[in-house]
C-alpha cells in the first residue's frame, strides 16, 4: 500500500511540474489556491468522513496557521526558512487543535457543530481585540521571503524558465498537497485510521474492542487541525495577508461543503471539492455577469451553487458526487 502511494505521489509530482510550467501566472495563482483548499479539505474529510466528527471551525483553525505564518514573517532582518515557518505554523495550529479537540471529543452531532460554529465566529474577534499585535481589521501584511538562490538556479536549470514568486508558491502548495495526501492515505489504512473508523461506525463496539474513544477523536482532530494550519499558512502567503475578513464563517462552511460535495471520507473527493472551490467561482461569475447580474451579485452565484449542491447531495446522494455517480453506474449495470 505504502509503495503504491509513493508511486502515485511521484506521478503526481510529475503532473504538477508539467501543469505549473505550462500554465500562466494567473493559473499558477489559482493552483496555489487549490492547493491550500485541498489540504484543508483533506484534513476535514479525514475528521468528518473517517472519524464522524463535524467541524465548522476549520476556517478558524486556518486563521491560526495564517496568523502564525504572518507573525513569523514580520521581522525585516531575515526570517527562518519558509519550510520551517510553515512547519511551525502547522505545529502551533496542532496545539490549538489539540485544545479544541480535547473538548470536542466529548461532543457529538449538533453539539459539536454548535461548539465549532462558536469557534468559527469567535476567532476573528481575537485579532480585533489585540489589534496592536495582530493588526486589527486590516490584518497583518505578509512579506514573502526571497526565493533561495540555489533553488531559483536549479529551477532555471531544469525548466529553462525563471521561477516566479507565484509559481514558487504553487510548487510549495502542491508539495504540501502531495506530502499531506500520502500521509493521510497511509494513516487512514493504518491501525490508527481503522480505529478512527471503528469509533465512527459504532462507539460501543469500538470501546468493547479496546479502542480509547477519546484518544481516537482527539488524534483525528489534531491531524485535521494540522492540515488546516498548513493550509492557513499557505493561504497567508498567497494572499500576502492575514486578516479577519479572510476567515469568516463562510470559509468554514465552504470547506465543509467542499468535503460533502467530494464525498465524505474520500481524499480524491477532497481534491475534487478543492477544485470546485477554486475554479467554479470564475466560471459561474462570468456566466452571471453575462446574464446581467452585477459583479457583486454574480460573485454570490458560486456559494449559491455550493449550498444548493450540498443540500441536494445530502438529500439524494449521501456518498457525495463521486459516490453518487458510482452508485448510479452500478445501478445501471445491475438493472
Amino acid at each position: 500500500m505504502v509503495r503504491r502511494h509513493l508511486l502515485l505521489a511521484l506521478g503526481a509530482l510529475v503532473v504538477v511540474v508539467l501543469v505549473l510550467e505550462t500554465t500562466s501566472q494567473f493559473r499558477n495563482a489559482q493552483f496555489a489556491a487549490m492547493a491550500y483548499y485541498a489540504i484543508a479539505a483533506a484534513g476535514l474529510t479525514i475528521l468528518t468522513g473517517l472519524n464522524g466528527q463535524l467541524s465548522l471551525g476549520h476556517g478558524a483553525l486556518m486563521a491560526v496557521g495564517a496568523y502564525s505564518t504572518a507573525l513569523m514573517l514580520q521581522s525585516r532582518e531575515g526570517t527562518l526558512p519558509l519550510l520551517v515557518i510553515l512547519a511551525l505554523a502547522t505545529v502551533i495550529t496542532v496545539v490549538v487543535g489539540a485544545l479544541v479537540g480535547v473538548a470536542a471529543a466529548r461532543l457529538h452531532g449538533p453539539y459539536l457543530a454548535g461548539a465549532t460554529l462558536a469557534l468559527a465566529v469567535a476567532i476573528p474577534g481575537i485579532p480585533l481585540y489585540f489589534s496592536e499585535w495582530l493588526g486589527g481589521e486590516q490584518g497583518l501584511n505578509v512579506r514573502m521571503p526571497e526565493i533561495p538562490v540555489w533553488l531559483a538556479d536549479a529551477a532555471y536549470f531544469v525548466t529553462g524558465q525563471e521561477l516566479t514568486q507565484i509559481r514558487y508558491l504553487a510548487y510549495l502548495g502542491w508539495l504540501g498537497v502531495i506530502v499531506v495526501f500520502v500521509l493521510l492515505a497511509n494513516l487512514s489504512r493504518s491501525r490508527v485510521g481503522r480505529n478512527w473508523q471503528a469509533v465512527r461506525d459504532d462507539e460501543v463496539a469500538a470501546e468493547l474492542a479496546g479502542i480509547n474513544l477519546g484518544r481516537a477523536r482527539v488524534q483525528a482532530f489534531v491531524v485535521s487541525a494540522g492540515c488546516a494550519g498548513l493550509a492557513g499558512g499557505l493561504l497567508a502567503l498567497s494572499a500576502r495577508l492575514a486578516a479577519p475578513s479572510g476567515f469568516t464563517l463562510t470559509l468554514s462552511l465552504l470547506l465543509l461543503s467542499a468535503v460533502v460535495l467530494g464525498g465524505l471520507g474520500s481524499l480524491v473527493g477532497a481534491l475534487v471539492g478543492a477544485a470546485l472551490l477554486t475554479f467554479l467561482p470564475q466560471v459561474v461569475t462570468g456566466a452571471g455577469t453575462d446574464l446581467g447580474l452585477t459583479d457583486v451579485q454574480a460573485a454570490q452565484l458560486a456559494p449559491l451553487i455550493y449550498g444548493l449542491v450540498t443540500v441536494l447531495v445530502v438529500l439524494l446522494a449521501p456518498a457525495g458526487l463521486a459516490g453518487g455517480l458510482r452508485k448510479l453506474i452500478h445501478w445501471r449495470r445491475s438493472s
Binding site: L54, T250, P303, P318
Partner: peptide, 27 residues
Amino acid sequence: KSEINAVILTLGLFIVLHALAAIVFGS
C-alpha cells in the same frame, strides 16, 4: 436519518440563503 446529515443539510441551507440574500438584497 443520520444526525450528521441533518446538520450538514441545515448548513447547506445556511449557505444557500446567505448567497440568495446577497444576490437579491445586496451585500
